[in-house]
């Protein structure tokens, strides 16, 4: 019973006897710990390897000498420029709309709050392709709103940069909303009360008291949102299609370059990796420390 496992760990307890008094229990359970630690450590290393090895593979296979030449190749430059534009646009829209939504969830007594919140964060768990299909059915030419929108304003979303921005916003904004909502819930609302007794209007309070309080959350939410927008693939390809310079963002370019110029795809991947790492470093207080 008690003394079977220790042998494996190489630490044998002195007393072989079966009786286990209170203190003896401590002594005989001690040898078990290392073996549990060994197992857990092995599994942890395995998990780490799962993340690390692909990164090493990507870096190892990237033709480092060709980077300067590939990174200025028209395909890479075009995709990078478009990605920067669309992801920043998505970030801007997400901030302008997402912060009020977070406020709405955090501060208003919303009926069916959980249901509404679930809808708002659904894109975080929804396969992006499904999101793209849903966007098409809503804002496509035959979509619920897309048809009337095009008739009235002449604006068409599918196959346009605006569509790519919309797809990116769709999948990325929830990250900002949940992060900012958490920040708003943590913020001390009594500080807002204090400000109001000093004669501050609601707008002044949000600007001078609430916003500084949630600034760390907002920063983290914006970084996450932007990173997600930058990496967006499924919804974009489904909703906005793929056209160089118009809707072909970096991830789409990587996917297609794999077919024609794998090395360029690796370089582009490495570039995306570098950006992701930069975002993590930016968020280090949040995710890199326990």
């Amino acid at each position: 019973m008690p003394d079977t496992a220790p042998a494996a760990a190489g630490i044998t307890s002195a007393d072989p006897g079966p009786p286990r008094p209170a203190q003896g229990g401590v002594a005989s359970s001690r040898p078990r710990l290392p073996s549990a630690h060994v197992v857990l450590t092995c599994l942890a290393v395995l998990a780490l390897a799962l993340f690390l090895v692909p990164l090493v593979g990507l870096v190892a296979r990237t033709p480092l000498t060709r980077i300067p030449e590939l990174i200025v190749s028209p395909a890479v430059v075009q995709a990078t420029r478009l990605s920067v534009v669309t992801s920043l646009a998505a970030l801007a829209i997400s901030t302008v709309l997402g912060v009020p939504l977070a406020w709405f969830f955090a501060r208003r007594d919303v009926p069916f709050a959980n249901l509404l919140r679930a809808i708002a964060v659904l894109p975080m768990v929804l396969p992006p392709v499904v999101g793209g299909v849903a966007l098409l059915l809503a804002f496509g030419r035959r979509g619920l709103l897309g048809g009337p929108l095009e008739q009235v304003t002449g604006v068409r979303l599918p196959f346009t940069t605006a569509g790519a921005v919309m797809a990116a916003t769709f999948v990325a904004m929830p990250f900002l909303v949940v992060t900012v909502e958490a920040g708003l819930r943590q913020a001390d609302q009594r500080l807002e009360d204090a400000a109001s007794t000093l004669g501050a209007s609601r707008w002044t309070i949000y600007r001078r008291i609430t916003l500084p309080q949630i600034a760390p959350s907002l920063g983290a939410g914006m970084a996450l949102c932007w990173a997600r927008a930058l990496g967006e693939f499924g919804a974009t390809i489904t909703f906005a299609g793929n056209f160089p310079g118009r809707t072909q963002t970096m991830p789409l370019a990587v996917y297609l370059l794999l077919e024609s110029d794998a090395q360029a795809a690796y370089v582009l991947s490495l570039l995306l990796l570098a950006i992701s790492v930069a975002v993590l470093v930016l968020l280090r207080g949040r995710y890199l420390s326990p």
Binding site: P158, F159, I237, T238, G241, N242, F243, T247, L252, L256
Partner: peptide, 15 residues
Amino acid sequence: TPASLEVDVRSVLSK
């Protein structure tokens, strides 16, 4: 002047 260059032929059809 194509509106999109889809990643595979099935996507062309679905569009």
